[in-house]
Nucleic acid binder design. Structure first.
Lengths: 348, 348
DNA sequence: CCTCAGACCGACAACGTTGTCAGGCAGGAG
DNA sequence: CTCCTGCCTGACAACGTTGTCGGTCTGAGG
């Protein structure tokens, strides 16, 4: 193409900078002022004449100057970013929570780091460490079900931390939780009210805080109704289809079979819904955790819904309160759950 | 509780640091070496005697020293973090994509900023700007359906950018896309093969790239099968239940009514599934985008599934390739879609 | 003995910004 | 007239790290 030459397209995307970023010095030089004056203009500080302000703004635009917050942060000790460490950003509950955190941070013009730990302690610690190395101003964490006393050194260094969804063991931090015990109680009571006396419980392993809480709620409902607790109807473990299938089968094979089912969290609910026995022998069912399409299932699912958006927003607000100077003992906020009645709890 | 006093619990969480973070200088002083030696140990550089190395490591542990990457980044010009700007992290497709990006970044020990733009250009630009101010080393963006030439100045400054899910208009960047046209063609062909000649299309507004592509695929299928294209069966707009309901009604009221339905993306599919007319008059249906519980719906849904995890991982790899020095023109990677056959395309 | 290579080590500058501070200047009071 | 006050302004140090560079020390080789 002789005679024609378009710059950007000629060599493709550059491996390195073609136009190095302008600094405050370049701006100052172009505007004919001192660097401090540029700083003042950038940060909207007073005591700059209108004339110089305009000159600086013009130079900023011309050079496409973008202040380096990393340098500013180094100088004044804050990054205007917070970190969110969760188990898995791809999981609907947690991604909704993340969205709410992001929203609150964004209103301040702050940015959010997200990191998924897969509920693995080592990964979690590496990520917290990595976040701390970037000097985030605060941390929201959905703690893995293990000891968290390692967070104490961060706390001592002045890093505010908020735990969300589960409490963090071994460390005193602000905390936002769902009312899982009460939610489970209401959900199970819903079945009991329909005359059931044998309700199977399928949930996470007992070392998971939320599993314990929800099982406690299950027992509350039972004892409220004067129904004896029978451990042979309780099935706790990893949320796989095989395990769910096994649980369903055992509940049915029981000398006094289960006539209803309560699943303790979304993953176990999903596993259960996919177990062959579930389709073959549908039984009245209430699930903990809302599912995206729960209303559209073959048998619309009655659920105890949490409110991840409120939890995320609350966690972020607790964090920002600390950053704004709130002192005092760790706060604990309990977000209520809500029973959403659909069809699945009724007898077929 | 007289006579008892536990330190950390006495005053609650501190508003500011109690123990200021140790710096490389503190470590050097304690270990009795120069700061450069500490730096060498921290970064695993050679030419440090075993003796001093041990002394430094001991001091680091004792002071809980954590290098300040913000300062390091200022000095050597990289942040070891990348930014991800998407429409909404709470949306399943995008959160899965985000998870994959995070995974790839994590393997390098890098961190990820995530920011949701809500497909609003202003917000998107503010977030990109904010990310650039933090000097992220790279950017992955799910571009809002508007002009993106504003990204050119970032590109010029040496910031590698990768577009995911949709191309970015007005700027030359690496890009990862689904094969939406072909996917839609296959999905519609699946209906055509079952004898349908009147297939309604419910999708996003035409200014959305993916809507255009998928509509093109729809037309491809039609023309492959020798079926004439009829605009009166095409319904494009915002994905609300009301609009879906209206579309369904119009498709049925057509002089030659639609006998099958293709929905062009998850939000429109959801809206359609919830439209009263859908339940009242179920019609063979194929949807673009997998839904979390599609297999468990009353009528399990046949879908054209994208692969968000592969897209995210690919985008991240393209980005890291650029960071590792790949030059050359913008790459475009097309990730295939997959038809998942369930029941919904069959006549009742 | 001297020379030289190479390992080891630390002083110092630099990265880009903001806080501190002191100087200049205008205008009002005395 | 001088003095003071209060606004503007920029020089400079500092934030915590890494690259550069020159110095010391050890051991081998001549």
């Amino acid at each position: 193409m002789p005679g024609l030459s378009i710059d950007r397209e000629a060599g493709g995307v550059p491996p390195a900078a073609r136009v190095p970023r302008a600094t405050i010095k370049d701006v100052a030089a172009l505007a004919g002022v001192g660097i401090k004056t540029v700083s003042r203009v950038v940060n909207g500080e007073p005591h700059v004449s209108e004339e110089k302000r305009r000159a600086v703004q013009h130079a900023i635009a011309q050079l496409r100057f973008r202040p380096n917050m990393s340098a500013a942060g180094l100088r004044n000790g804050q990054s205007e970013a917070i970190g969110l460490v969760i188990a898995d950003i791809a999981e609907p509950f947690q991604s909704q929570l993340a969205r709410a955190v992001e929203e609150v941070a964004g209103r301040r013009g702050w940015l959010l780091y997200t990191a998924s730990s897969s509920d693995d302690t080592d990964r979690e610690q590496r990520m917290v460490s990595s976040l701390a190395a970037r000097r985030v101003d605060g941390l929201i964490i959905v703690p893995s079900p293990f000891d968290h006393s390692y967070l104490n050194s961060e706390l001592d260094a002045g890093l505010p931390i908020v735990a969300a969804d589960r409490p963090a063991a071994g460390v005193q931090v602000d905390c936002v939780l769902s009312n899982g015990r009460e939610g489970a109680r209401v959900g199970v009571a819903h079945l009991l009210e329909r005359g059931h006396r044998r309700v199977a419980f399928v949930g996470d392993p007992i070392h998971v805080y939320n599993a314990r809480e929800r099982l406690a709620g299950y027992r509350d409902a039972l004892s409220d109704a004067g129904v004896p607790y029978d451990p042979s109807l309780i099935f706790l473990g990893e949320p796989t289809v095989d395990r769910a299938q096994e649980a369903l089968r055992a509940a049915r094979a029981n000398p006094s079979p289960a006539t209803a089912l309560f699943t303790g969290n979304s993953l176990n609910t999903l596993a259960t819904l996919r177990a062959p026995d579930y389709r073959a022998h549908p039984v009245p069912h209430v699930a903990f955790d809302e599912l995206p399409l729960a209303d559209l299932l073959g048998r619309p699912l009655t659920v105890v819904a949490q409110d991840p958006a409120t939890m995320g927003a609350t966690a972020a607000e607790l964090l920002f309160d600390r950053l704004d100077g709130r002192a005092g003992p760790p706060a604990e906020v309990i977000v209520p759950t809500r029973l959403i009645v659909r069809d699945s709890a009724e007898a077929p």
